[in-house]
Design a protein around this nucleic acid. Structure first.
Length: 824
RNA sequence: GCCCGGGUGGCGGAAUUGGUAGACGCAAGGGAUUUAAAAUCCCUCGGUCGCAAGGCUGUACCGGUUCGAGUCCGGUCCCGGGCACCA
């Protein structure tokens, strides 16, 4: 393939070689150090987009680099294949989600292969395969047995467009994460995973993941939302009931003058006196109808309604009217708030609106607070007043003291509250993993016996877009004998959230063909944890939290021995064009197929790695792509053009080198060092590529014709360039490696080592400053001592004029770098 | 409001530990080659003054520490992201 660089033929040739030799297959080998590299697997939407190109290019560089360095690399790929779009497509095309999904997988697999990504394709999996999801059903049953999966009736987030429930994590600013519709509340029987059991551990380990970006950890900490406070019981007047409250501000307890319940609070109606009933019911209806996003908006008007009941402040014994308030959340704390209008802004506004009493219990050390004239709540620290034994204390100290006091008196207890809610996994959709449960009128909820697994998704469902979950309309599927009593029962028709499948796929990759369980423990022990995980930041609290939770569950079920799935995490930025994320609606999409067709996969990879560091957003530039293509052409021509000069070069004789030859070798070894460090330590692919470009520029200027003795150096230099390029642009590197006379493939060549003594400079450029300003540059031998360098600096012709008429006060010398002459 | 990032040429970005600001690439301008164009090659390319040598100035803004600050400290402004009636 001499002559012109034709990416298409080069790429087809090497892709065929890689496919035939299966050289990227991973085999467990305890004698070798393993490296598990994983990119978030794609949803088979139809075609890959630039985000995929970027994600998988980044991953492939690392996989190939580590492989060349001698690691036993596991680099698998698969498909996050269940989900809504398949079902929508089926409705639209009067087809079947399976057909649509598998066709997409076939096409996208061919696209990934055209990118030359070094996957072990023998480990490929699709989560919609029975062979995958049946194990998830088994895990579900085991979780159910341990109480980690349970069904409860609750208010859930309902997306009217997707006609399904969403987990809290899947609601973004009150809207569905997928279709952006406003999410409503709906009361339903739903399956949950008890992620809250793991809240403490999930939080703890955010401090034990040094390989994760801090901002992802912070997001997860915020999401888990641990806070310390008290649970306090407020007796209801005239009843034996108590209203339980969670507060972090027990120091304000003496100022609690009324009670606010969430409208969804289970006691709301029973506390309502008959004469207020109509008004209360109307209020509850109104709140329920309000979209969740509007309800939590900043300017949302605080409203409430009086139930007619009273409870008692346990420390002051004063009467507290019980209200329902629209701003009280049912799923945070206990759904009930002791209202302290003087020291909480929301309670303050509410009290003013409904003329409720105010009592100052923390006196500001600045201005004196007067309930009659206050215009806002005082939320800072101060001195306790009107608080019995606690008067005179600092409010910060009183927090602890009051908590102790409540515990001693049996009025309340210290407690920890989490913002994290259990993970609602029921989805009222067909294209998902069926929850392996049976509802029997006589026996209640009965698990499908393990021997009856898998519960196979029936093929003959109909996709009309009407009437809700298609699965519920397949009679053969739904009607089943109760495993306990044998009477006719109904199968659960909810399927699992697709995030369940992506919560353990990285474990399945370790032994994807294992037929005796979800995971072959021995193989998983070798490969796990994932050494490097790469994906988009948008999963910071969705997938990345669920996967951490699931790994801990799998550990506790005995499937694996690790606490955390991902040792190092790289969150790559978005691909931007014309100032916006690439999207069909904005019309700024660049199609990878067209790009590869025109310039080849190597150029597509090169540009997406060169244009920006991986964690930053990448600005797409068509001219930039052409620049990358030009560079590959230059390398191609350089190698082929100089071939006659060095193809039969003698072995390198370092003693015989000319000064020019030594200089070139120095540049080569410096570049190897730079690229190795950029890949190993920093993931700075852009600067690594820049360094290779610099070396290529140097080589182009190098004239070996007149110095035959330099031919071996040129050969070493070109081989190094090709090896350094191999992780980035594997096809063209493989081709050039062959052209340079190597028959055994660049993948097998190993990463070039650098020799520090060759990379060491013979002369140093020392910068000379006068009073911190750059005035000259001098070249000194490496061996030059401090006084020698200082003398050279003081006598430099360009420096001298700036010292005229001044006396030198001090000379700062940074060895081998800089001299700063302080003069005045 | 709180918590993270970030602000460097016309553009994407580099400067790794406080030590030459602008590597590498794109765009632009000029030249060579060509009947012409594309492609390729060479040169210029932060601002400003200067014929030039060179000077001054410059990393959002103000101040500080230091022999020396894009980098450290204090304050201000702007942009991006996350969280939020969280009791």
């Amino acid at each position: 393939m001499e002559g012109k660089y034709v990416p298409k033929s080069v790429e087809e040739k090497w892709q065929a070689v890689w496919s035939a030799t299966k050289c990227f297959g991973a085999v467990e080998d305890t004698a070798r150090q393993k490296y598990y590299l994983l990119e978030m697997f794609p949803y088979p939407s139809g075609r890959i987009h630039m985000g995929h190109v970027r994600n998988y290019s980044i991953g492939d560089v690392m996989a190939r680099f580590k492989r060349m360095k001698g690691f036993n690399v596991l680099h698998p790929m698969g498909w996050d294949a269940f989900g809504m779009p398949a079902e929508n497509a089926a409705i639209q095309n009067k087809s079947h989600p399976a057909k649509w999904t598998y066709e997409n997988i076939d096409y996208m697999r061919s696209q990934l292969k055209k990118m030359g990504l070094s996957y072990d394709w023998d480990r490929e999996l699709a989560t919609c395969d029975v062979e995958y999801y049946k194990w998830e059903q088994l895990i579900f049953l085991q979780m159910y047995k341990r109480g980690l999966a349970y069904k409860k009736n609750s208010f859930v987030n309902w997306c009217p467009k997707c006609e399904t429930v969403l987990a809290n994590e899947q609601v973004e600013e009150g809207c569905c994460w997928r279709c952006d519709s406003e999410v409503a509340l709906k009361e339903l029987d739903q399956w949950f995973f008890r992620i809250t059991d793991y809240a403490e551990e999930l939080l703890d380990y955010t401090h034990k993941l040094p390989g994760w970006p801090e901002r992802v950890l912070v997001m997860q900490r915020n999401w888990i939302g641990k806070s310390f406070g008290c649970e306090i019981d407020f007796p209801v007047e005239g009843k034996s009931d108590r209203i339980k409250v969670f507060t972090t501000r027990q120091d304000t307890l003496y100022g609690a003058t009324f009670m606010s319940l969430a409208p969804e609070h289970p006691m709301a109606l029973e506390l309502t006196v008959p004469e207020n009933r109509a008004e209360v019911e109307e209020f509850i209806e109104k709140v329920k109808k309000t979209e969740k996003s509007k309800r939590s908006a900043e300017d949302f008007e605080k409203e409430g309604v009086f139930t007619g009941s009273y409870c008692t402040n346990p420390v002051t014994n004063s009467r507290m009217p019980v209200y329902l308030a629209n701003f009280v959340l049912t799923d945070y704390g206990t759904g009930a708030v002791m209202a302290v209008p003087t020291h909480d802004q929301r309670d303050f506004e509410f009290a003013r609106k409904y003329s409720l009493p105010l009592q100052v219990v923390i006196q500001s050390e600045g201005e004196k607070l007067d309930p009659a004239t206050m215009e806002a709540a005082f939320t800072g620290e101060g001195i306790m007043v009107n608080s019995g034994l606690f008067d005179g204390m600092r409010s910060g100290d009183a927090k602890e003291k009051i908590a102790d006091f409540l515990e001693k008196k049996g009025l309340g207890k210290k407690t920890v509250n989490f913002r994290l809610r259990d993970w609602g996994i029921s989805r009222q959709r067909y294209w998902g993993n069926p929850i392996p449960m049976i509802n029997c009128d006589l026996c209640g909820v009965v698990p499908v016996p393990e021997k009856d697994l898998p519960v196979v998704l029936p093929k003959d469902a109909r996709f009309t877009g009407e009437g809700g979950n298609p699965l519920a309309m397949v009679d053969d599927f739904v009607n089943v004998a109760c495993p306990q009593c044998g009477e006719l029962a109904r199968r659960e028709t909810d399927t699992m959230d697709t995030f369940v499948q992506s919560s353990w796929y990285f474990l399945r990759y370790c032994s994807p063909d294992f037929a005796a369980g979800p995971i072959d423990k021995a193989r998983a022990e070798y490969w796990m944890s994932v050494d490097q995980y790469i994906g988009g930041i948008e999963h910071a609290v969705l997938h990345l939290l669920y996967a951490r939770f699931f790994t801990k569950v799998m550990r506790d079920l005995g499937y694996c021995a690790i606490d955390e799935p991902f040792t190092n995490l790289l969150t790559q930025g978005m691909v931007i064009k014309d100032g916006a994320k690439m999207s069909k609606s904005k019309g700024n999409v660049v199609d990878p197929d067209a790009l590869i067709q025109r310039f080849g996969a190597d150029t597509a990879r090169l540009f997406s790695l060169f244009a920006a560091p991986p964690e930053k957003d990448l600005d797409w530039s068509d001219q930039g792509v052409e620049g990358g293509f030009r560079f590959l052409n230059r390398v191609w021509k350089l190698v082929h053009g100089t071939l006659p000069l060095h193809v039969h070069a003698a072995p390198l004789d370092t003693a015989a080198l000319s000064e020019e030859g030594r200089g070139l070798r120095r540049a080569v070894h410096k570049t190897i060092r730079k690229v190795t460090e950029d890949l190993d330590e920093r993931f700075h692919f852009n600067t690594a590529i820049a360094a290779i470009m610099e070396l290529v520029n140097t080589l182009q200027a190098f004239e070996p014709k007149n110095h035959p003795v330099n031919a071996p150096v040129l050969k070493e230099a070109l081989e190094s360039v090709v090896l350094l390029l191999a992780p980035f642009v594997p096809h063209v590197a493989a081709e050039l490696w062959e052209a340079l006379g190597h028959g055994d493939g660049v993948e097998q060549a190993g990463w070039p080592p650098f020799d520090p003594s060759v990379a060491a400079d013979e002369e140093l450029l020392v910068v000379v400053q006068v009073n911190g300003k750059l005035r000259g540059k001098i070249t000194v031998p490496v061996s030059a001592g401090e006084s020698e360098v200082k003398d050279a600096a003081l006598t430099d012709v360009r420096v001298k004029p700036f010292l005229e008429g001044k006396s030198v006060r001090k000379i700062i010398y940074v060895p081998g770098k800089l001299v700063n002459i302080v003069a005045g």
